[in-house]
Design a protein around this nucleic acid. Sequence first.
RNA 1: GCGGGGGUGGCGGAAUGGCAGACGCGCAGGCCUCAGAAGCCUGUGUCGCAAGACAUGAGGGUUCAACUCCCUCCUCCCGCACCA
Length: 799
Amino acid sequence: MFYNFKKIEKKWQKVWDKEAAFSARPSPDKKKYYLLEMFPYPSGKIHMGHVRNYTIGDVAARFKRIEGCNVMHPMGFDAFGQPAENAAIKNKTKPGAWTRKCIQEMETELRKMGFSYDWKREVSTCESGYYKWNQWIFLKMFERGLAYKKASGVNWCPSCQTTLANEEVIDGGCWRCHTKVEQKDLEQWYLKITEYKERLLEDLTQLKNWPERVLAMQANWIGRSQGVEIYFKLKDSDMVIPVFTTRPDTIFGATYIVLAPEHPLVKGLIQGKPQEKEVLKFMDKVSKENKLARASANVKKEGIFTGSFAVNPVNNEVISIWIADYVLMEYGTGAIMAVPTHDQRDFLFAREHGLSMRIVIQSTEYRVEKPEDLTEAYEGDGLQVNSGQFDGLPNQEAKKKISRWMEKEGMGKIKVNWRLRDWLISRQRYWGTPIPIIYCPQCGVVPVPYKDLPVKLPKDAPFTGEGGSPLGKVKKFLEVKCPKCGLKARRETDTMATFFDSAWYFLRFCSPKYQEAPFDKKEAAYWMPVDQYIGGIEHAILHLLYARFFTKFFKDLGLVDFSEPFNCLLTQGMVLKDGEVMSKSKGNIVDPDSMIKRFGADTLRLFILFAAPPGTELEWDEWGLVGANKFLNRVWRVQENLKEKAEPALVKVLHKTIKKVTEDFSEFKFNTAIASLMELTNAIYQSSADKEVFSKLVIMLSPITPHFSEELWQALGNKESIFKAEWPVYDSKMLAEETVTIVIQVNGKVRSKIDVPNDIDEAKLKELVLADAKLAPWIQNKPLKNFILVPKKLVNIVL
RNA sequence: GCGGGGGUGGCGGAAUGGCAGACGCGCAGGCCUCAGAAGCCUGUGUCGCAAGACAUGAGGGUUCAACUCCCUCCUCCCGCACCA
């Protein structure tokens, strides 16, 4: 007998839909539980990654619901973005029409998986009812100086014809199309995320239930480093060059200074010097170099002497000033003090150019007398030498003392440097939220008044893929009266990066139709923060950092009273096939829809949870799917053979299973939960289940295989949905065994096992163990040295 | 280089100081069957006829007892990276 998954799945999906079975509203007497999975970009088809992500989430949602929580489990679409525009160019359609069609198709596929979403809360970021609030948030930020426009060198993707945030540049390429990113000088809109850098870093410690690696990646990205900004005066002028260092303990070993080629002081330094021409040539050469090539480590460090000299403030030594490509303008002050003996980069550069070196830190393990004896820089800890009054101190201690001393003497300033840059959000594309700004010849940059929101995207824009943003070609959109003075003005034609949209969608789900603000404060106060967030590791930096930033901003606006949006985070592993990530380009995609057709959604859900724990990679295995299906059919057949009363031994197994499954579900250990449900099923096959045992098995399966379980539940004579049933509770009395098996080891090796009464006392047990005939050859007549007893488990006889 | 996570049968994986390999896939054998890519049952780490020995990337240590804790090393994956 096979169960008819096609019929069953369709039937229950219809019922749940009709009854809006999973819609959630605040309730005072139940514990709220907000479960969220990262919403998808509506490409039109779901892939296995979605299936895995949403299955994990759905099982958790259904489990929490049946455990008695008030669960909110919404779904929506991250619907703005470039693919829609590319499709429009290619297929001569409109991005809006294309996107809405994709959303519909995708929704159909999600419904086929039986996910228990509250579809009444569905949001789509491309609808003006949503992006109006993007504009509202932008204006609030603009008012507070957190959204600003500036001209600077930006990352430019020549293929997508748009700018990219730092976070969107992966290995020097565009995150979307992998095209090599170029540098371009443009005036662009930024969000001042750096204003929140301290809080973004500090609050990471609050996130106890986030994976270690995500926390590490975020901390790394924010990149706080503590050090000193040291002022180097020029030898023959009052000009000062500030440098940043995290190693003030090595200042006495600084034997030259290096500036980035783009450093603004360079021109003044070389003016009139014999080196001027050469240096200019070098600067020109470096500026033409690809940033990626320049950044790739271990390339030869090229540089040139400027002809100028500076003075080391701690010892008044006159040192030469260089420029070199290994110093970056973007970090610190764009200038460094070089300590070749204690920094490998400086060491290589100094050797290349014959610059002098001085050892200022001696390892306590070995001594190097002369810098010429060094084969590489010594970057470890040790004792200060050649460092004036600091000689003999451990360098870590000297670091603090020198910092304070320099600050007191006015030679420098203790400073913290950050890696995090402001977030570039403007995109020269059509399919995104219009930035609500007007440029007036008289008033300058004028924000669109709140009452005029939303600034709607014009429906008909030309999509050619050439000649800049399509919005710039729509007169009706472009030409506008200045809201301040009424003069003819021009709208901003850039749109917002889509990461803006997803930085707060979890709040919109709390009140998706709310008209007064991005979200209803009261609803958000009830549902937020998200109790469990689930999504891919690829969002570890971008999306999660932006969402944290927005939440803190909302807190500052007084809209929420928490500062972190996601309490627990689960990053699910990738789905692989033949050891490689499933991807279109590799041609190793398995289409979920075809699997649903062959095996049913329940089988697919079961397999994907059973094959690996949620956090690790999952190797696709069609045989595994067959096995999952086999198991369900095995459970299905149990109903044909129910007894009046189950054997006590089976009831015991049931209670053990309840305990294990309940614990495993709470910890997202679905693979082992399923294993124990399989064991219970095997035990049923060894004897026979009664209605009670079988009902409980079916309930425990219901979060994983909802349609299948609902059908069996009904067949058992229940009128109400299985999701209104009660989660089984185990009886700890049932777990207690009358006899236990004691493993007997001799010198740590298992030699025998005996069954003894559960409540046996120690002396009696010892007597029984030592009388065990099987042990005789091992014990012989050797004296007993030790007798280790682990109650109810094991003894170890040490001879 | 820095940071994070791994390495266990033919395969996915289980066990976080106490019987290594639960559960499943695959494979082998049996039963049932006109038939089986169905179902049910049994077996399945390696060597060995067996007793037993060996076995969780390698080596060392702590312990009565180590996949689990500590040290050294190898190796794979991911993130950041000339960040001063």
